[in-house]
Structures are given as structure tokens and as C-alpha cells.
């Protein structure tokens, strides 16, 4: 039962690279926010936030090295949140 307790150890170098990428993305998102793109701004900001989040999840939180089940569970939670937000807009947008 304790078969999957063996751990994947992430190297310091990989963690540092992820960190550097996160910092770079932060700079990019701030930079983009200084340019006026209209409604695109919010989507760009969200897209960058999502890619940063993915990095944190996959590497810092080891999701990449966990069993596939964890990823499915996470997707289930994320979908639920999206549904909650999306369905609320069925009301708000058409009221």
C-alpha cells in the first residue's frame, strides 16, 4: 500500500530555474499591464497568472511527479470553480 511513498527529489537547479521563470513572468505581466490593450489586458493578465500557477503546481507542488489521480482531482476542483463562476454569469449577464 505504501508503494508510492518513494519520492521524486527535485534538484535545486530545477527549482531555481522555475523561480527565475516565475520572476520573469511577473515582470512581463507588470509590463503588459502598463500598455493599454482594452479588454485584452485582463485576459493577458489571467493567461500569465495561469501559466505562473501551472509552474508552481507542477514543480513546487510536485504535481508533475504525483500519480495521475492527483492531477485529475485538481482538475475536478478547478472545473467546479469555473462552473460556479460561469453559471453565476448566466444570471448577471442577462439580467
Amino acid at each position: 500500500m505504501n508503494d508510492t511513498n518513494s519520492q521524486h527529489i527535485l534538484s535545486y537547479a530545477l527549482l531555481l530555474r522555475v523561480w527565475a521563470a516565475l520572476l520573469a513572468l511577473t515582470v512581463v505581466t507588470v509590463g503588459i499591464s502598463r500598455i493599454d490593450l482594452g479588454a485584452l489586458n485582463i485576459w493577458a493578465a489571467l493567461a500569465i497568472a495561469c501559466s505562473k500557477g501551472t509552474l508552481v503546481l507542477l514543480f513546487f507542488m510536485h504535481l508533475k511527479y504525483e500519480s495521475r489521480l492527483f492531477a485529475w482531482m485538481f482538475l475536478a476542483a478547478l472545473c467546479t470553480l469555473c462552473i460556479f463562476i460561469g453559471f453565476t454569469f448566466l444570471d448577471v449577464l442577462y439580467r
Binding site: 467546479t80 453559471f87 448566466l90 444570471d91 442577462y94 439580467r95
Partner: peptide, 22 residues
Amino acid sequence: GSLVWGHHMFASGMSDTAVFVF
């Protein structure tokens, strides 16, 4: 069951689109 909460709100002033879907 997690997609139908709006049926508690048909008389609440919610939009008709939402009424339809829920």
C-alpha cells in the same frame, strides 16, 4: 446536483436565461 442551484431563485429577479438553464 452542483449545477442546479438557481432553481431556488426563479422568483428572485434572476435573469430569464438563467431560469432556462437551471
